[in-house]
């Protein structure tokens, strides 16, 4: 177990370094000069040159890479070109908000999937089953940002039930989280219904039923635990989709999180900020995947993890 975690962490480190290096190079070899974006329009060449010197983009790429890597080792991600603030400070503000949003979205999606999925699996052909299919199909075809804008238009702007945007306490999280949740509900729902159906057909469920265990206990205590294993897999695979959903939700609801920050940073060609966000999101991404693999052993003790 210890060996497994160490080897996975090393792999994770390698992936994060590779992605960061890739982003670092792509930013510098493609078109767009941060100094020109930052400088006021019609600036003289001297002013632009001054910005380049300030940003350090007048140095050679290996030199820039050296100072960037040196900073990262010391926990310093540099200063944002656009905001003139340390990158760690900007990310430190935005990341907790985005994590709150993502966690709430994950929680909501799992709740919807479990409730609808279990009901649909227990009563095949019932309205619940039909509804689960409809939610899955609609959720897959309806663009997340459209649903978000509809919620925003009708629940927030017209009825005033929720704040229309921004970050201001728990209430401002509900609509964006629900929007982001919709990006992964369809797959979760489908997988859970399918695995629940096959689990309910197992011998041990019949044995439990025969010995008089109440139905709710069979469903939630015995069957759900086994049926949730594929759900866990899907969640691991879907973390990427959730991330996409969160970015979209942040844009729709003007939510000041990492997604918005990343889009602003990319448009401003704010190298340090883009690099910092890349390191942080890639790390979170690989760590979540590792956590999910470890969770397998909790849900199903038969699974053993071995160093790959």
């Amino acid at each position: 177990m210890g060996r497994y975690v160490t080897s996975r962490l090393l792999q994770a480190l390698f992936i994060v370094v590779a992605i960061t290096l890739g982003v670092f190079l792509i930013l510098r070899v493609t078109a767009g000069d941060p100094a020109r974006v930052r400088a006021p329009v019609f600036s003289s060449p001297e002013v632009i040159e001054q910005y380049r010197a300030d940003f350090g983009t007048d140095r050679s790429i290996p030199e820039q890479l050296g100072s960037f890597a040196g900073g990262v080792v010391k926990g310093d991600l540099g200063e944002s070109f656009r905001f003139q603030k340390p990158v760690t400070e900007l990310i430190g503000e935005a990341l907790p908000r985005t994590l709150q949003l993502a966690l709430l979205a994950l929680l909501m999606s799992v709740c919807i999937a479990v409730v609808l999925g279990v009901l649909a699996a227990r009563h095949p052909g019932s309205p619940w089953d039909w509804m689960a299919s409809a939610v899955a199909a609609v959720g897959q075809s309806a663009p997340v940002f459209w649903v978000g804008l509809l919620l925003s238009t009708y629940l927030a702007v017209k009825l005033g039930l929720f704040p229309a945007g921004g970050y201001d306490g728990f209430k401002s999280l509900i609509l964006p989280a629900f929007t982001a949740a919709l990006s992964i509900v369809p797959t979760e729902l489908r997988v859970l219904r399918e695995s629940m159906r096959s689990t309910l057909r197992q011998e041990y469920v019949r044995a439990a039923r025969a010995s008089g265990v109440p139905e709710w206990k069979i469903t939630f205590k015995y069957a759900l635990r086994n049926a949730s294993l594929p759900l866990l897999t899907v969640i691991g695979v879907d973390v990427g989709y959730l991330l996409g959903g969160v970015i979209v939700a942040e844009v729709v609801f003007n939510f000041p999180g990492i997604g918005q920050l990343a889009l602003v940073a990319l448009n401003a060609r704010d190298y340090p900020l883009v690099q910092g966000i890349t390191i942080v999101t890639a790390s979170v991404f690989v760590l979540v995947n590792l956590a999910i693999d470890l969770l397998y052993t909790v849900v199903d003790p038969r699974i053993r993890l071995e160093a790959a």
């Binding site: 991330l243 996409g244 990343a262 990319l266 991404f285």
Partner: peptide, 8 residues
């Protein structure tokens, strides 16, 4: 996560 790839 391909949304990041696409954005990049």
């Amino acid at each position: 996560p391909y949304i990041l790839l696409a954005v990049a």
